[in-house]
């Protein structure tokens, strides 16, 4: 399996670094959330507790901009520049091409997310007593959530020809899927009893609600299944959308 997914992964991963996208992504990723964490929200110093909960609570919103920015070209660029014609006349299954691209994007997000590890390390040195179990869970949750965001944005990119369309479509869908959970908790009053079912549905489909437990340091099977299931569903949609191109 490697001998086919591997070259795609390698090419995609290095193409992020051939352009400035990977550097911009990593630098902004370290800079913006940290700025928000330390200054705007008062963060760690205000709470006077060694926890990264607030930092991770921002993650679903940070991803709405960052991940579509990273993956907008996954298919839109291939279609726009015609390279898709090369790619799909190579003797390689479609799912392996998607998998190679997916793992490359996921690895880059992993590097960016992983690069924030200096916060807990620094905090450990200055404030001490960090709950490393909780930190581990938060990072695992962030990576699972990133996988789902990548799968969704890949599918959206496969529906478009232009990078900007791909970016706008992806971030709008992610914003909707993220905010629908926020609405249910922030505006409880707009859900009268008879609309209770809608609140449950919005909560269950929300990308951010399922991250709440991870950011508290708790792993629920339900949340893991949600992220993996949704990622696989959109992976499947991506395959179908690319397949339909052959018949159109």
């Amino acid at each position: 399996m490697y001998n086919k997914i591997g070259p795609i992964f390698k090419k995609e991963f290095s193409s992020y670094f051939n352009s400035s996208i990977a550097y911009v992504f990593i630098v902004l990723f370290i800079f913006i959330p940290n700025l928000m964490f330390f200054y705007f929200f008062g963060g760690i110093f205000k709470e006077e507790m060694a926890t990264m909960r607030r930092f991770f609570q921002m993650m679903p919103y940070v991803f709405i901009i960052f991940i579509p920015g990273l993956t907008m070209g996954s298919w839109a660029k291939e279609k726009n520049e015609g390279t898709i014609e090369m790619l799909f006349t190579f003797p390689i299954s479609q799912w392996k091409v998607i998998a190679g691209k997916f793992f490359a994007a996921w690895a880059l997000v992993g590097i960016a997310v992983g690069s924030t590890l200096f916060i807990p390390i620094l905090t450990q040195l200055t404030m001490g007593d960090f709950d490393w179990g909780q930190i581990f869970t938060q990072y695992v949750g962030a990576m699972l959530m990133a996988a789902t965001y990548i799968a969704i944005t890949f599918f959206m990119s496969s529906l478009t020809m232009e990078l900007i369309d791909s970016f706008l479509l992806s971030s709008s869908i992610l914003l909707l899927l993220t905010l629908c959970g926020y609405i249910t908790s922030a505006y409880v009053m707009i859900f009268p009893d008879w609309l209770g079912w809608l609140k449950v549905i919005l909560n269950e489909i929300s990308l951010s609600t399922h991250f709440n437990n991870f950011s508290k340091g708790v792993i629920h099977t339900k949340d893991v299944v949600y992220y993996l299931g949704l990622a696989m569903l959109f992976f499947y949609f991506n395959m179908k959308s690319l397949e339909s191109r052959k018949w159109s």
Binding site: S15, E81, T83, M86
Partner: peptide, 9 residues
């Protein structure tokens, strides 16, 4: 292919 598409980067 006609326009010999390639990964330009």
């Amino acid at each position: 292919p006609e326009k010999s598409p390639m990964y330009q980067d």
